[in-house]
Design a protein around this nucleic acid. Structure first.
Length: 469
RNA sequence: GGCGACAUAGCCAAGUGGCAAGGCAGAGGACUGCAAAUCCUCCAUCCCCGGUUCGAAUCCGGGUGUCGCCUCCA
């Protein structure tokens, strides 16, 4: 049974979907005014694994992740760059998809844009107005939080606490300081749409309520996002959606912990924002992914280049192992497993069971990764054994890594490197030289190949080659 | 002020009652012509003080320390 931590209850709960066998997931996606940073990446990667795992377990998953393509930041940036808001969005959605792909993040089933759902947003605001849960003031429309008695239930606060903690000067036109805007009156030179309240644009929170229910129905199974969205964003989504439908908006709230960089919060003012685009230039994006997965998704993590290097080395061991298994498979023999091999096959099975148990337990990827390395040791011992290897055994081990990769997405493409004739000849020459104990020639060939990016490793079973990482 | 996290080896990090996973770094060893890779061995009284229990990293109370959120930042 899969257990998932629910922010709403503060405990792990058994995952029971609204309709059997189907799961709808909505995630708050990027505001597409810039490249996304590694903190955003942590959220996207976590949700990607969640989604992959549920699919793997046989659920029919529908995953929706929006693009916020209209807000103050979008408008400001478009002005700076002297392009339209829409051009800005188009550009950074493309960049998002490229960077996400490099991180092994699969595209969402639906990727709605706020500006393409204005009718749904307007309908939702109208419903709230009809029910007396919203009010219009001079072309702006606000949500009336006092009309929604359970406001604050997700973040565990009540209205008076929130009001007294308010750090921003109160807008006189609002009935309550915590009331938030659903529709903003048009400002000159900014994008706007027709509405019953005059031209304007949607507030931030309303787009998620409108789009999530549009694609997934009134009650979502899982709604995910960064921890800092709990308040006010997700609190407001609940108020809007439940206010309009009278039904539970979300069964399971999933929130991903914060990522710090060099022990500091990433922020523009500290000038320490690291985008995935930047990181891709010097580091391996899949190592970043593996780094994220090596801690529990709800814990805060601290990123440094040093840690990334540590992770990269660890990950390289797994890549090498899978590569070596594939290469060795060419020389493996048919036949039934001997005793030693039977024991190994049992270990493959128990590693798999352990892996799945870890994943079932609130997606404990850190623990699951432990199983990958435990089996790696056994597999390496097997590859080193003098008695040769059997196809069936190598296949089983390989499948273990392929299945775990399907869920976690950590392996590089590790098809064995095919050698061209020239290199094949060099290898032959080197083997001959080694037989003659002519180490000078042998080493020279090894060095020469290294310069062209091919690494040789002499093993008791013969020479092994791979491309330099 | 309110709400909520977290504290495990040199570093990263799992583990929520029964002899403390895994990775990186380090030391020693095996294998090897050398190298690389790999394997073996070594490396933690789980922030402090009380309590509950046959038994606590794990539960309870009290400290200390770090951090997040409290109107648009993932």
């Amino acid at each position: 049974m899969i257990k998932l931590f629910n922010t709403f209850s503060g405990t792990k709960e058994p995952l029971i979907p609204v309709s059997e066998g189907k799961i709808g997931i909505y995630a708050c996606g990027p505001t597409v005014y810039d490249y996304f940073h590694i903190g955003n990446a942590r959220v996207f990667i976590t949700i990607d694994v969640l989604r992959r795992y549920l699919s793997y377990r046989g659920y029919q998953v529908t995953f929706v992740q929006n693009y916020t393509d209209i807000d103050d930041k979008m408008i400001g940036r478009a002005k700076e760059m002297d392009i339209t808001v829409q051009d800005l969005a188009d550009r950074f959605i493309d960049h998002y998809l490229e960077d996400a792909d490099s991180l092994g993040i699969l595209p969402a089933d639906y990727q709605p844009r706020a500006t393409e759902h204005i009718p749904q947003i307007i309908t939702l605001i109208e419903q709230l107005l009809e029910k007396g849960m919203a009010y219009e003031v001079e072309g702006d429309v606000y949500f009336d939080v006092q009309s929604f008695p359970s406001y604050g239930k997700l973040s565990g606060q009540n209205l008076s606490e929130l009001a007294s903690g308010s750090r921003v000067e109160v807008d006189e036109r609002k009935k309550h300081p915590v009331d938030f805007v659903l529709w903003k009156k048009e400002k000159p030179g900014e994008p706007s749409w027709e509405s019953p309240w005059g031209r304007g644009r949607p507030g931030w929170h309303i787009e998620c309520s409108a789009m999530s229910t549009h694609y997934l129905g009134d009650t979502l199974d899982i709604h995910a996002g960064g921890q800092d969205l709990i308040f006010p964003h997700h609190e407001n989504e609940i108020a809007q959606s439940e206010g309009a439908t009278g039904k539970t908006f979300v069964k399971y709230w999933t929130h991903v912990g914060y990522l710090n960089i060099n022990e500091e919060k990433m922020s523009k003012s500290l000038g320490n924002v690291l985008t995935v685009r930047q990181l891709r230039q010097e580091g391996d994006p899949l190592a970043l992914r593996f780094f994220m997965l090596s801690a529990h998704y709800r814990s805060p993590i601290n990123f440094t280049l040093e840690y990334l290097a540590q992770t990269s080395k660890a990950l390289e061991r797994l890549n090498s192992l899978v590569y070596n298994i594939r290469q060795r498979a060419a020389k493996a023999v048919d036949g039934t497993p001997d005793n030693e091999e039977e024991i190994l096959l049992q270990k493959v099975q128990s590693s798999w069971d352990k892996f799945m148990q870890s994943m079932d337990d609130d997606f404990n990827t850190a623990e699951a990764i432990g199983s990958l390395f435990e089996l790696a040791r056994e597999a390496n011992i097997y590859l080193n054994r003098a008695g040769g290897q059997k196809i069936k055994v190598l296949e089983e081990i390989l499948q273990f890594y392929q299945k775990t990769d399907q869920i976690l997405g950590y392996l590089r493409d590790t098809a064995p490197l095919a050698l061209d004739e020239e290199i094949e000849e060099l290898l032959q020459k080197r083997e001959e030289a080694r037989r003659r104990k002519d180490w000078a020639v042998a080493d020279e060939i090894r060095d020469r190949l290294k310069e062209s990016g091919i690494i040789l490793e002499d093993t008791p079973q013969g020479v092994r080659w791979k491309r330099e990482k």
